[in-house]
Amino acid sequence: MTPSPENSDAALLADHVAGDRAAFGVLFARHRDRLWAVALRTMGNPEDAADGLQDGMIAAYRRAGSFRGEAAVTTWLHRVVVNACLDRLRAAKVRRTEALPDDLEEYAGRGSVASAAPEVDDPADVSLRSEQRRAVLAALAELPDEQRAALVLVDMEGYPVAEAAQILDCAVGTVKSRCSRGRHRLAGLLGDLAPGRDAGHAEPRNPLPPPAVRPQEDTRAPP
């Protein structure tokens, strides 16, 4: 029997564990946009993001029986994907110097709109925002992996710190510390491009733009 798209995440995961071959596909399609956005911003380019997302989904597919319901299913899925991406970064010791992909704008709107530029008419504004976004993502690639993951979740995807802590499987204070250190380092890397930088303050403010309010549920699948 084909699972209903109205089934809850927990019901779909339980159906998958029970042997429903279609249930996991429905669950993945429901959260694909958000998972892709996190993977892309963590890895820095579509090719590695696709590999990280695939690793994460294979792991989730195989380990679904270990899910005990301590957190929401979507939190668990994000944890598995983030861990898969971090594993790839650690294994490869990724420190990219090449330009970020031209098609990043296309993917920025999938899931959270935290890092997508608002619509403007002035081409100069569009170019400036695009350059700033590229600079931010390039600077993110210079951070330690754990700081990058925390900033992507909290500052770019708009997750509450408590939920990011669940995804990263660490204490709330650890997420706050990683974000604080990451923001401070980003401010130094970005220099005058950091929107929160103020010459009159010894401590730079958050160099990342504030995230947009996250939707409660995004069920749209990419085309």
Rank of each mutant, 00 (worst) to 15 (best):
D103S: 13
D103A: 13
D103V: 15
L104E: 15
L104K: 11
L104N: 15
L104R: 15
E105M: 14
E106G: 07
E106N: 13
E106I: 14
A108F: 15
G109D: 06
G109K: 04
G109M: 10
G109T: 07
G109S: 05
R110F: 12
R110I: 15
R110H: 12
G111F: 13
G111R: 13
G111P: 14
G111Q: 12
G111I: 11
S112A: 12
S112W: 06
S112L: 10
S112Y: 05
V113K: 04
V113L: 11
V113G: 08
V113R: 08
S115L: 13
S115Y: 10
A117R: 08
A117K: 06
A117V: 00
P118R: 00
P118D: 09
P118K: 10
E119T: 07
E119V: 03
E119C: 01
D121S: 03
D121Q: 02
D122K: 04
P123K: 05
P123N: 07
P123T: 04
P123F: 11
A124Q: 05
A124Y: 05
A124C: 03
A124T: 12
D125C: 04
D125F: 01
D125E: 08
D125I: 06
D125W: 08
V126G: 02
V126T: 06
V126M: 02
V126A: 11
S127I: 14
S127H: 13
S127W: 01
S127C: 02
S127F: 09
S127P: 02
L128W: 01
L128A: 07
R129A: 09
R129P: 09
R129Q: 05
S130L: 08
S130G: 10
S130P: 00
E131C: 12
Q132H: 10
R134I: 11
A135F: 10
A135W: 04
A135K: 09
A135G: 13
V136T: 00
V136L: 03
V136C: 03
L137E: 10
L137H: 09
L137Q: 02
A139H: 04
L140Y: 01
A141R: 05
E142F: 03
E142L: 07
E142W: 01
